[in-house]
Design a protein around this nucleic acid. Sequence first.
DNA 1: TCTTATGCATAAGAAAATTATGTATATATT
DNA 2: AATATATACATAATTTTCTTATGCATAAGA
Lengths: 112, 112
Amino acid sequence: MANSKLYKGSLNTIILKLLEEQGKMYGYEMAQKVKELTKGELNITEGALYPALHKLEAEGLLDVEVAKVDNRLRKYYKLTEQGEKETINRLAELEEFIRSMQRLVNPDWSIN
Amino acid sequence: MANSKLYKGSLNTIILKLLEEQGKMYGYEMAQKVKELTKGELNITEGALYPALHKLEAEGLLDVEVAKVDNRLRKYYKLTEQGEKETINRLAELEEFIRSMQRLVNPDWSIN
DNA sequence: TCTTATGCATAAGAAAATTATGTATATATT
DNA sequence: AATATATACATAATTTTCTTATGCATAAGA
């Protein structure tokens, strides 16, 4: 994972974004989804993912619902009302951040 | 600074990129330049900047040259040969990272 | 049967920032 | 003249956020 250092700080926003578009997901599923969407570029480790989910839950941004599928545990997360509002803010910040990075790194790219 | 958490990990690459295009710069100047280029979005703190410069120097990616201007100290940094090579690699990684983030956050943006 | 995949969790350690200081000179403001 | 702000560096203490390592448990595939 060449980019491992770079995505520091964006994990929470990634989680929120996934839940915004998917409705509800469980942790393992999120990691798979990110790997798929980024063609293996971003690999969310479990040691980062689960604590992040717990923290977002503690902050009141996520709700949990435990399910049992094939005799295995799954914890489905979804956005709370507050979580939906926060997601909008954090996505805006992340997009602005991405634009800033583009301006720094490749000014002639695109003017988004 | 709304994005403060997000740029973690990219500071080193930003420094290298600045030196690649500007030739030589001193620390304070870099911080000003980044603020200007990002329209105040990214604020590099001195507590992050100076240790990062020292580390890049220790790694052999930067050379220093001390100057005195208006009776004030300045430390001009420039890329070493090794630094130039590393810069190319790290910029490629950062650009790939930005694309990944775009795919995650805003799939319909641009296909760079 | 043994490995891989699924699915969660947490502790120890490392990396990379922020925040808070500190030093010193120059310029602008009151 | 005094004070605040800008310039220019530096570092220590702390915090945030990861990685790595470990652990438990079930299902599926080789």
